[in-house]
Computed example of a mutant assay.
Amino acid sequence: MASRGAIQSILTEPDSTVALAPAVPALLPVARPSLPRFEALAPYLRRIDEGRWYSNFGPLLNAFEARLADRFGHGAQVVTVVNATQALTLTLLALDLPRGALCMVPSYTFVATAHAVVAAGLTPWFVDVDPADWMLSPGAARDLLAAAPGEVRAVVPVAAFGAAPDIAGWKALREETGIEVVIDAAAAFDTACDCALPTIVSLHATKALGVGEGGFLATNDVGLAERVRRLTTFGFHGERLALVPATNAKLSEYAAAVGLAALDDWPTTRLRYLRASQFMRMALSQTKIGFQPGWGADWITSVCVVRLPAGARAAEVEARLEADSVQTRRWWGEGCHANPAFRSHPHADLTATEALAASVLGLPFAVDLDAHEASRIALALERALDAGRG
């Protein structure tokens, strides 16, 4: 294995394409989103101008949904929604579960998951995750049912930071128990390709494929897709009659234009994320941090979230990195259960969640992150860890 000095030399050797860092480094942001540029959008924007169709399921949105459905295979139905939180809320509502019923949710997730459960009229029951992959497993969920504080009618597994959940295992649990399973794959555009279970994907600007604000449901259940569609458009279904209480959560033609341009470039975008991931893996190879299994190799996502070495505290390392102009983010904080909005809801033992919250940190990452930036992050992280040991 190469020494830290050798890696630093390789990554910091100047070349003709990357300028040397300034003497006083500028802030390196934790996220640097990138959406399609005007040149890629222009053909789609011209189609909007020419057709003068701006919303309400126009030709671009229909084309965008069809291309998204192609990623999931034969029989897939895609319903776009104004954002993934609404997509999850409306999908849970469309399942017509008893109001107040328990919905099992990992506490280690972004608060949007819990907000959606509550907005759908369900009661979140926060449970723990596997410390190895940071996700709730079907086996653990099955074991937890016996200790539930009431009847569990739904579970929302979360694809942690974009990792692929065990779809086959979750499908088996649904078949065995009758409990509805909805996958929160907000950050998992790259790995979401099976819609045997209702799957929600985010199209936020910070995601690997984004439109600014947006999200979608992918499912092979035609009836569910129709019910969710109805809920996004005032309860209408083929005529201007509100058949059910609903909302307005449609995606516009402009958002679809961005999505189509992003899909056009997706193969290249994915390769660029892989390249940036390898820069980070090489630069951080001597720091004893832990990556999620498969990150940057088997799958890509738009963030770099790492587990710090034993004994290192995320809050302390975060402060030292910020002082070194390297911005960080503890994306999921202390877990949903620790937020005032959800403290009254029941929870199981959360030992792994609390350990992850204290040791996991998001580092600067972007589709165009280069080797020099990766080296700067690694060196700053090494200094921060050394200061903690001192």
Rank of each mutant, 00 (worst) to 15 (best):
L144V: 11
S252I: 03
G212P: 00
L93A: 03
L173K: 05
L350Y: 07
I200W: 00
L284D: 12
F126N: 05
D298N: 15
L260P: 03
E13W: 11
R320G: 12
M104T: 09
I48S: 15
H204L: 02
P364K: 09
T80A: 05
L284N: 13
R71S: 08
P346G: 10
C336T: 05
A84I: 00
V129C: 05
T219V: 05
A348Q: 09
R47F: 07
S55P: 08
T12V: 07
E13M: 11
R272S: 13
I7C: 09
R389K: 12
G169H: 05
R329C: 06
A31P: 01
M104C: 13
G5V: 11
F38Y: 15
L93Y: 02
A246N: 00
T191V: 15
L260R: 02
P198I: 00
E239Q: 12
E13L: 14
D264N: 14
A257K: 08
S202A: 03
R240H: 11
A315K: 13
A84F: 01
A371I: 04
P364Q: 14
A120Y: 05
A192L: 11
V201Q: 01
T191H: 06
A366K: 00
V111L: 08
F216H: 01
S9N: 09
D349G: 11
A380Y: 07
T80N: 04
L361D: 11
I7M: 11
I183K: 02
T85P: 00
R313H: 14
V258L: 08
A23V: 15
P43C: 10
R272E: 08
P59L: 06
A146W: 10
A172E: 14
S375N: 06
P267E: 10
V111H: 05
D221R: 10
R174A: 12
N220P: 04
D130A: 07
T113I: 11
R230F: 01
L173D: 11
R376F: 13
A84H: 00
G100M: 12
L321E: 03
A348R: 10
A63I: 08
G5C: 04
S107C: 09
D349L: 15
A87S: 02
E318G: 13
L260V: 01
V24Q: 14
V152S: 03
E316L: 14
V78Y: 01
R142L: 06
D194Q: 03
T247V: 08
G388H: 09
A323W: 10
W332I: 11
K250W: 05
Y44S: 06
L102W: 06
R272Q: 15
S137V: 06
L60Y: 05
I179G: 02
A112T: 01
I289K: 03
A297L: 15
R229T: 00
P106M: 14
S277D: 09
V118F: 07
D143E: 15
R329I: 02
G235Y: 00
N56M: 06
V182S: 07
E50F: 11
H337E: 13
L88S: 00
G214F: 01
L35Q: 01
L136V: 07
A366Y: 00
D184A: 01
D264G: 10
A338W: 08
Q327A: 14
T191G: 07
N220L: 02
G58D: 09
F365S: 01
